[in-house]
């Protein structure tokens, strides 16, 4: 153990791999000693585990399937040992629905963070690297998207595309890339005139090689930080669309949609809106704390200051 530690923390690493591992380990140490970041990490990890094992955790599935008198007696039950979070108007177990709904939340987040940031990243670096009319063209397109409040634009898109989870995801992705493009462009501008880029250019490196090999890696860490900080926002936007009826459709247990359903009964049956609300709150908080922690670790501007 100490040997490994010594290898990781070596002042003069023997290889690039060792150096990379060393940096990673230092980052982990810094992260590990930040209690808030660890709380966020645990929340997100728990969410991942819950989503992974959802069918085993959720005792009753998303639908009770009850009819007639059985339905009459099992609906709107308050939280109890049997139904931790109570039951709704169709006698469905709210706890089970929230557990299964965690998968939907994760799918939304995953799909958005694997599309929007990448698109924005490419547009931003290309724009910053080439400058001139490429820059003007791409940035004006970005401006068009930035001219609308994000949620309003997402609402309009989701409404135009028709209701459904897919269009909600697409709407969120389409509205979140401009911020990444701006970020990547700003980073690119600070390094496009550096000597090492000029040197690489003199050696005959192509544009694509310069962008992908030299610029992108340098911009990556700030992008990752930004993405983790945005995850909470993505979850909230998705929940907002679900709340307004533009996201997942019944009986899909999307959290935002569950709150919308519970809203009609908020004065009579508080648990219907409260628990999905708490779930969204907890997960959004978790991603935020995790993002803050990751920024401390990954932000190149604060790099090395231990």
């Amino acid at each position: 153990m100490t040997e490994l530690k010594g290898w990781l923390l070596a002042e003069n690493p023997d290889s690039r791999t060792q150096a990379a591992f060393g940096r990673g380990y230092l980052g982990w140490l810094r992260f590990y000693h930040n209690p808030l970041a660890m709380i966020g990490f645990v929340i997100v990890l728990t969410l991942l585990l819950i989503a992974l094992f959802a069918p085993y955790i959720a005792p009753e599935g998303i639908s009770s399937g009850l009819t007639g008198d059985a339905l009459k007696n099992a609906r709107f039950l308050p939280p109890s040992a049997e139904h931790w979070f109570g039951t709704d108007g169709q006698a469905n177990d709210v706890f089970s629905r929230i557990v299964i709904g965690s998968r939907i939340t994760l799918v939304i987040v995953a799909l958005v963070i694997f599309t929007a940031p990448i698109l924005g990243f490419i547009i931003g670096t290309v724009s910053g690297y080439f400058g001139g009319w490429v820059d003007i063209l791409l940035m004006r397109i970005t401006d068009v998207f930035l001219a609308f409040p994000k949620l309003v634009l997402a609402l309009a898109l989701a409404a135009a595309l028709g209701r459904g989870l897919e269009s909600a995801i697409f709407a969120i992705a389409i509205t979140s890339w401009p911020a990444y493009a701006r970020l990547a462009r700003a980073e690119t501008l600070t390094i496009r005139n550096t000597d090492y880029l000029a040197a690489a250019k003199l050696q005959g490196a192509s544009h694509w090689r310069l962008i992908s090999g030299h610029i992108m890696p340098l911009c990556l860490s700030s992008l990752i930080v930004r993405v983790t900080l945005d995850m909470a926002g993505i979850i909230l936007t998705a929940a907002g669309l679900g709340f307004l009826g533009l996201g997942a459709q019944p009986p899909t247990p999307e959290w935002g949609a569950m709150i919308a359903e519970g809203r009609d009964y908020i004065l009579s049956y508080w648990w219907l809106a409260t628990f999905p609300g708490l779930a969204i709150f907890t997960v959004a908080l978790g991603f935020n704390l995790l993002g803050d922690g990751l920024r401390d670790v990954l932000d190149p501007k604060s790099g090395g200051q231990h």
Partner: peptide, 29 residues
């Protein structure tokens, strides 16, 4: 139509239809 009593009834229909394997895609508008 997206109003509580209509959607709740439609959800009940969705549940009972499922008992014979009829999969209802519910679209509130």
């Amino acid at each position: 139509r997206n109003s509580p009593i209509r959607v709740d009834t439609a959800k009940s229909i969705q549940t009972t239809f499922a008992k014979v394997g009829i999969k209802v895609k519910l679209i509130p508008m």
